[in-house]
Nucleic acid binder design. Structure first.
Lengths: 125, 125
DNA sequence: ATTATAGTTGAATATCCATTCAATTGTCAA
DNA sequence: TTGACAATTGAATGGATATTCAACTATAAT
């Protein structure tokens, strides 16, 4: 491994630990995909959308009313979520119904919910 | 529920479904906390940090070398992660060691990893 | 064909935020 | 107490992105 990592302004403190971790690091492409996945849920509008279609499909109009936002801004975020494969849609007549893409999304949503709620409880002590 | 939701440019298409979902919606404050939680992991630098301290504590210098980034920018992101309670730190002499705050973080990290990897496999077909 | 409604889209704006740079703090050793 | 190293901090900059607005597409009904 040598000293080729000296690009940064550091002396290496724990060369053994660094070498060890380097072997176990995930591929950068996977980490970037993971960051993108989290990014999809990191916006308040998008997480509210996930929340309202959690238990069943809704059309854009319904979602806009529930979130008290314009159809345009909801539609933009629906597009983002769809491009991230977090939601899917089907057209029926003039309306387009959106729902979660799969169980993974709900799974991640629920774990985060529990995490946040537990933390809120801890803060009361 | 009436028509007080008419602020947006919509006719209500499915009033029953909307009323139903409205009762089950999470508190806005919880949803905002959840979005913030995801935001913490939505940056490539921050998720790389989580990746390298996944199995044990490291000092800022080690992390900078592994990520090939300046200590300053790593430190800024460590601060973000710490403010979100995703990581904790302890000082020993001149060095400060960072590690994951609790098992929740690893749990969410792993679920996301599996999600991304499965999706990558599906795309090969 | 025309009209109305559902939804999408692109450009513009405004805000947010990651990195850089320079200065600073904290700790240890001489 | 001076110097050296680890790390943090604040301000500035540049890039990303959420919402708005207006124009547009798609579908259905008359």
């Amino acid at each position: 491994m040598g000293k080729s990592e000296m690009i940064c302004d550091c002396d290496i403190i724990h060369q053994d630990a660094v070498n060890d971790v380097r072997e176990k690091m995930l591929d950068e492409s996977i980490l970037l995909d993971m960051a993108d996945f989290y990014k999809a849920l990191s916006d308040s509008t998008r997480i509210k959308i996930i929340d309202v279609i959690r238990e069943g499909e809704l059309c854009v109009c319904d979602i806009s009313v529930l979130l008290n936002m314009t159809k345009s801004s909801v539609s933009h975020q629906l597009k983002n979520l769809r491009e991230m494969n977090l939601i899917k849609c089907r057209r029926q007549g003039k309306e387009i119904y959106y729902s979660l893409a799969d169980e993974h999304v709900l799974e991640v949503f629920d774990i985060c919910k529990i995490h946040v709620m537990e933390r809120n409880n801890e803060e009361k002590d």
